[in-house]
Amino acid sequence: MAKTTKGPGSKPRVGLKDIAQSANVSISTVSHVINRTAPISEDVRERVMQAARETGYLGLRREREARGGIRKVLLASSAYGLAENDNNLFLWSILSALRARCEQIGVKLLPHSPPGDHLSAEGIIRAANDERADGVLLIHDDRRELLALLSERREELPPVVLINGEDPDMGIDTVSPQNRFAAFKATRWLTEIGHRNILHVTWHGRTTISRRRDGFLDGMAEIGVRPENAPIFAFSGPDAWRAQPFLSDKLIEQVRSENITAIFCGADDVALRVHRSLHKAGYKVPEDISLMGFDNIVHAEMSSPPLASVAVPVGHIGPVALKLLEERLSESFGPSAPARRVELACTLIKRASVAPLR
């Protein structure tokens, strides 16, 4: 039976031992058949090849051969960025799926997490060259100045792909969820079931979060609410809620003063904190106010009531980034081709935390 590799989006990981067990032959026989290093009877050879096909080994082997140019990939993220997201299951789910995929196709991930708040272009270039990396995956740090420097100095680097972020100048390839349109769909659902006074809870920071706010504004504009009049509660950063408890009181004050009937948060972990604030203030979800988040982390489904959300294909973001690196190294695409922005479709998850307006 094929071995399994844990992680979102992972596929069975198989080896010669699995094929040998399935075909009822020795591992050495499998090796000889696969590599054509010794004469084997036609019956045994066909049995081994059939087992190799059924276990998925042949498909994975072809993928590894196609990725002949990628053996080592630098994974760049600031140490502070990773620590800041210690409780962010969304980010760690992306990394887990990426690691599983790399293990599956024989690519070695080389972590680059220098101390401090941010990465530097110089540090990434030095690390990539010291490690002789075939590509760079950049995660969490999508500052425009960093991306511009990496684009300007591309000749000193292997291909670079930004994971879960955007490059407004389109200097490097990027992979992210369809944040704006998915947030628009979520907001439209709330308006379709009668809500008009919808509050968006967000924070100042990364481009991906800004795109979710833009999608909310698009949805509100559809019912005639101008951007400057759309209710928004924004705080300074993802950790501000824990560090500044008074934000909870300010949120409740806005909910009451603007007669809010639904709250759409830029992330599930924020929505769960908002839920606690609402409960403390005497509001019931969804009887008094509807609540939904974004990302569809496991905590969302397990909350009470289960939190409506937007499911992001976290198991595909890393593998798609690897594919972009691979294509940058291929003759058919090449390093001089225009940068690409890949957006992956998200799914609206309707749960009991949202109810039609009474």
Rank of each mutant, 00 (worst) to 15 (best):
A2S: 12
A2E: 06
A2D: 03
T4G: 04
K6T: 07
P8E: 08
G9H: 07
K11M: 14
K17H: 12
I19H: 02
Q21A: 15
N24C: 06
N24I: 01
V25N: 07
S26W: 13
S26L: 12
T29Q: 04
V30Y: 08
I34F: 08
D43L: 14
R45C: 12
V48T: 09
M49H: 04
E54P: 01
A66S: 14
R67E: 11
G69I: 01
I70C: 10
I70N: 02
A76P: 06
L89E: 10
L91Y: 02
S93D: 13
L95N: 01
A97G: 14
P111K: 14
H118K: 14
N129Q: 15
L137F: 10
H140N: 13
E145W: 06
E145H: 12
L147T: 02
G165L: 08
G165E: 05
R180P: 02
T187R: 05
T187F: 01
W189R: 12
G194Y: 09
T202Y: 02
R206P: 02
T207E: 13
R211P: 00
R213T: 15
G215F: 00
F216L: 08
G219V: 08
M220I: 08
E222G: 09
I223Y: 04
I223C: 07
F233V: 03
F233A: 01
F233H: 00
P238N: 04
P238H: 02
T261M: 09
I263F: 04
C265P: 03
R273Y: 07
H275D: 11
A281I: 10
D288T: 13
S290E: 00
S290V: 01
S303N: 06
L307N: 03
V312H: 00
P319V: 09
V320A: 09
E326V: 01
R328Q: 11
E331S: 12
E331L: 13
F333S: 10
L348R: 04
L348I: 13
R351G: 09
P356C: 13
P356M: 13
R358V: 08
